[in-house]
Amino acid sequence: MTTPSAAPDSYYQRVGEHRYKPTAHAGGAWSTDEQHVSPLAGLVVHEIDRYLAASEQPAKGLALTRISYDILGRIALEECEITVETIRPGRTIELLEAVVHIGGRSVVRARAWLLATLDTSAVADTPQERIAPPEEFTPWQMGDVWDGGYISSIDIRRGAPASPGRGTVWLSSRVDLVSGEPSSPLASYIGLVDTANGIAVQRSPKEWMFPNMDLTIHLHRRPEGRWAGLDTTVSFGPTGHGLTSTVLHDSVGPVGHALQTLTVRPLTEG
């Protein structure tokens, strides 16, 4: 087992060409000896960015418009290796797959669709309304609800409290994704999105578990700036299943949507 570094400046440190060591900042909310999916999701995009930059035929003019993460099991707070390959090459549409390995086991499998970019500004529009800017929201100590190094590393501003299962927040991070390496704004933004499942709880996480099995992000434009806005709704069904649905924002307005499938069960189950 690899002991996580306590480096104050990043979620990960590079230890090999495609290997990364998590710091204490990557600690999970459900269990502090696991990685939170948020920074790991950003790390996957960081590795995809590196893969595209090193490609003999780089995907010029293509933009990531959807990425889906399937969580295959426990994500230990240990060194991980990320492999990336092209599943469907193309000049206007391309599909990539990234797999996160820990201890010789695949723990996350992600697929990313890249689409050609062209000027559609004349018809750009969305019926989704903008949320108020971060400066109009109130600082929130999310650590009062959740544990873990990741939760402690982010700046959170929350809108007026709503009913259980509804919440709107702005998030930004105080640390880098990878120590000593610049990350794209997209990787940094996606590194915040999985937080959505914890901002609008239906029931106390001290009484119920509702971890997400996946994370799917759809984008209709590239996020800008350091803040990620999450306008989130959480629904629990009657048979142990749930769904977290989020409209994603940046300082300009809505940028897309995120969905997370939940497994819902009482902590006292036995």
Rank of each mutant, 00 (worst) to 15 (best):
V169L: 06
G198N: 05
H36K: 12
D155R: 15
T120F: 10
S179T: 03
L248R: 02
L77N: 08
P39T: 01
F137H: 13
P89Y: 01
G240Q: 04
E56H: 09
G191W: 09
P133K: 02
V193A: 11
P185R: 13
D144K: 11
D70H: 12
P22I: 00
L219S: 08
T3D: 14
S31P: 05
Y11W: 06
S163R: 15
R66L: 08
P254C: 13
D49E: 12
H36W: 02
Y51R: 13
E81M: 09
D49K: 10
G242A: 04
G159N: 11
V84R: 03
T239L: 06
T246R: 05
S179R: 13
E79L: 02
G159Q: 07
I131E: 02
T138A: 14
R157N: 11
Y189C: 14
G240M: 03
G103P: 00
T92I: 03
V108S: 07
R166W: 00
G240V: 08
D144C: 06
H241C: 08
F210C: 12
H220T: 02
T244Y: 03
R91Y: 01
L64F: 06
V169I: 05
R221H: 04
E135S: 14
R105K: 14
T126R: 10
I48G: 02
L96E: 08
P133M: 01
A63W: 11
R226N: 13
K21A: 13
Y51D: 14
I48Q: 04
L77P: 13
P4N: 01
S245P: 03
R166K: 10
I67E: 04
I154G: 01
G198Y: 02
L192W: 10
P254G: 15
M213Y: 05
A258S: 14
E56G: 15
E47V: 10
W113T: 05
P205Y: 13
F210I: 05
P238R: 15
R166C: 07
I199Y: 04
P58G: 15
G159V: 10
G191M: 09
S153K: 11
A54E: 10
P8Q: 07
R111P: 00
P139G: 07
K60W: 04
A162C: 07
R19V: 01
P134T: 07
I156G: 02
L177I: 06
S251T: 15
T216D: 13
T23L: 03
G256S: 12
P22T: 02
V234W: 04
V175M: 06
R109N: 12
G16Q: 11
S121Y: 05
P185Q: 15
E17T: 06
I67P: 09
Y189K: 13
R14I: 08
S106R: 14
A59G: 09
V255P: 00
A6Y: 12
I156S: 02
A162W: 04
T246I: 05
R203V: 03
